[in-house]
């Protein structure tokens, strides 16, 4: 009973915070509400028992997306961009009607779902042993539906190329983002030195644990990216130039390793086929490489296009 009340309150809170993020008068306030929203949705995922998704939502959906949006708001303010007049909720009856209708249709579709549909849970459980890992979500991500994940890492690469290609010509080959300066002894500078060891430990642990428990390359890689972003914001390290060879190798290493394993599979049964007796080692190798590349790529996506000279 307590659980049911908690769930209902959580749902109402999620809807209220989403409304605040959409309708807030101040753009910065909206972004802060969006971050809170992401954390509440992560809580909802734990209530559903989907801990892997909760980790991804908290780290990526709330964390990195939040940093990205806060940075964008600050950047637009610095550029003197004025906000347009805020929306007038009451004068928008027709739009509201459409949205209520859309939500109602989705709700009706949910009500019409077969209550006994078993989905693929049992099929995954039956084949879990052959996948080489104990966490069914990791088994789906890196073995049963490995092509999704392989293509996803390529999407990240393509998006990074897209972000970099928005650089002004004079900054090409330069460093992403602006040079950060933090007050020595201030909160940011102190945390920039204090948190990285813990963050690195947590990130590597989440990647390592992902084979048998909730976690994996994406969640762990995001924590590692956040560690680097924190140190960069504290002004302790500077972003490397986008043309640096080591940086590019780091970005490509994970997807290249994954692709190499996938192609090697052709000789053992098919593209992306992982032989069950070596599946665990192969998945751990791919995850380690992916975590490194994902960390670098996500951090660079948040840092943005090159904005200053290489020097």
């Amino acid at each position: 009973m307590t659980g049911a009340i908690f769930d209902i309150v959580l749902c109402l809170l999620i809807l209220a915070v989403a409304l605040a993020a959409i309708l807030g008068r101040d753009l910065f306030g909206s972004v802060v509400f969006f971050i809170v929203y992401g954390l509440l949705v992560a809580l909802a995922w734990t209530r559903l028992g989907a801990v892997d998704v909760a980790l991804a939502e908290a780290a990526i959906g709330a964390g990195l997306t939040g940093v990205l949006l806060v940075g964008a708001v600050a950047r637009l303010r610095r550029g003197g961009v004025v906000e347009p007049t805020p929306p007038r909720p009451l004068a928008r009856g027709a739009q509201m009607g459409i949205c209520v209708l859309a939500a109602g249709l989705v709700g009706a579709a949910i009500a019409g779902l077969d209550p006994d549909a078993a989905g693929l849970t049992a099929t995954v459980a039956q084949n879990l042993e052959a996948s080489g890992v104990g966490n069914p979500v990791t088994a789906v991500l890196l073995n049963f539906r490995g092509y999704d994940t392989l293509l996803e890492t390529v999407v990240l690469l393509v998006v990074l190329i897209g972000v970099w290609s928005l650089a002004e010509d004079r900054y090409w080959g330069g460093r992403p983002g602006l040079r950060q300066h933090a007050k020595p002894g201030g909160v940011l500078a102190t945390y920039g030195r204090f948190l990285p060891p813990l963050g690195l430990l947590a990130g590597v642990y989440v990647v390592w644990a992902g084979t048998d428990q909730p976690g994996g390359a994406f969640q762990g890689g995001t924590i590692l990216a956040a560690v680097w972003l924190l140190v960069a914001m504290a002004g302790l390290v500077d972003a490397p130039p986008v043309t640096a060879r080591r940086l590019r190798l780091t970005i490509v290493a994970g997807p290249a390793l994954f692709l190499a394993v996938a192609v090697a599979g052709i000789f053992m049964g098919g593209f992306l086929h992982l032989p069950p007796e070596h599946a665990k080692q192969l998945i751990q190798t791919i995850e380690a490489g992916l975590a490194l590349s994902i960390a670098a790529t996500l951090a660079l996506l948040v840092a943005g296009p090159p904005q200053r000279g290489a020097r």
């Binding site: 998704v53 949006l69 078993a118 849970t121 999407v155």
Partner: peptide, 24 residues
Amino acid sequence: LGPDPVPQALIITGIVVALATTAL
């Protein structure tokens, strides 16, 4: 049965792609 792992895996992929889209 617990939560279905296949939608979970697709959603994690979706969250990452949503971040990539947002960044671009």
